[in-house]
Design a protein around this nucleic acid. Structure first.
Length: 280
DNA sequence: CAGAATACCTGCGGGC
DNA sequence: TGCCCGCAGGTATTCT
């Protein structure tokens, strides 16, 4: 799935094509996504509207119109593309949104874990958005913030950084990469980490996410940028998907295990256990 | 309450 | 070649 960099890449890719453009039609071929697509409401309230602004909050894309906001989540396998001469819809091309400039925004999602919703009120108040934690690229996201949020958390730090009530947008790939960069063991209990380590971790998360955005995200299977090109950050992955292979830094064999049902790869040598780690 | 397990869905690769 | 299993970028909901 798209994590934050993939969603950001999608936002930047589609914005220039549809900002200030009018929605002329919507075709919903499959309404059973994570939640039912509100087809009737979209036809009545979204069609005919102009996209005034496009935003991202966590991994949600927000297409704001005067009458409301289209909320899109890509789930695990969703993607959005801009098409000019739209080829016939394939099996998993669930939704087409047509614009006044003849461009089509096509939503494709084989696993259907994504969502397309409509919110007439302030989208930040949507039930799915209002309890989300802060944005990782916000300057308020730092070591001090994590120290406060982690103080009673006994769970593995990897699980904790993936908890969107704490910080949004960090999924399985970037959690593993950030912990490697910060030299922190993914199984370390969140509350055991020092301010120094959490400062390092928050910086590592920002660094990794910024790099990934620059590379157009990470393409493993489904994800493509809105123009159909893959994301190139996949070439920069140091640990994710590299279990058993040599650490790029110390050459020792990377360990692979499950943490909270999610596969996790780390280097035993470079990501030391918190009890052993000392500030540099 | 925190934390763990489960659920949603399709497709693919590996092992037999 | 084909079947069965486990696995995949997420996260709300249900359980213990």
């Amino acid at each position: 799935m798209p994590e934050l960099p993939e969603v950001e890449t999608t936002l930047r890719g589609i914005s220039p094509h549809i900002e200030n453009k009018c929605v002329t039609a919507i075709i919903v071929r499959q309404h059973k996504l994570r939640w039912p697509v509100p087809v009737k409401q979209l036809k009545e309230q979204f069609v005919g509207q102009t996209i005034l602004d496009l935003k991202r909050r966590a991994k949600y894309l927000l297409l704001e119109c005067e009458s409301g906001t289209l909320i899109v989540h890509l789930g695990m396998s969703g993607r959005l593309r801009i098409l000019t001469n739209a080829p016939p819809a394939q099996k998993h091309d669930h939704i087409d949104i047509e614009f006044s400039n003849n461009k089509i925004l096509r939503y494709t999602d084989p696993r259907r874990f994504g969502a397309v919703l409509w919110m007439t009120e302030n989208p930040e108040e949507h039930i799915l958005l209002k309890n989300l934690g802060i944005e990782p690229l916000d300057k308020k996201f730092n070591g001090k913030y994590l120290l406060e949020k982690f103080k009673n958390k006994n769970i593995a730090v990897k699980t904790a950084v993936m908890d969107h009530h704490i910080v949004v947008g960090v999924g399985n790939i970037y959690a593993a990469e950030s912990l490697f960069l910060a030299g922190i063991h993914p199984l370390a209990p969140a509350k055991s980490l020092t301010l120094f380590q959490l400062e390092k971790l928050s910086k590592a998360i920002k660094t990794i996410l910024r790099q990934a955005i620059k590379q157009g995200g990470t393409t493993l299977k489904d994800f493509t940028q809105s123009d159909g090109k893959p994301g190139y950050f996949v070439n920069k992955l140091n640990v994710y998907g590299r279990g058993g292979k040599p650490c790029i830094s110390c050459k020792s064999k990377l360990t692979s295990l499950k943490i909270g049902q999610r596969s996790t790869v780390y280097c035993d040598k470079c990501q030391c256990s918190p009890a052993l780690e000392k500030p540099l």
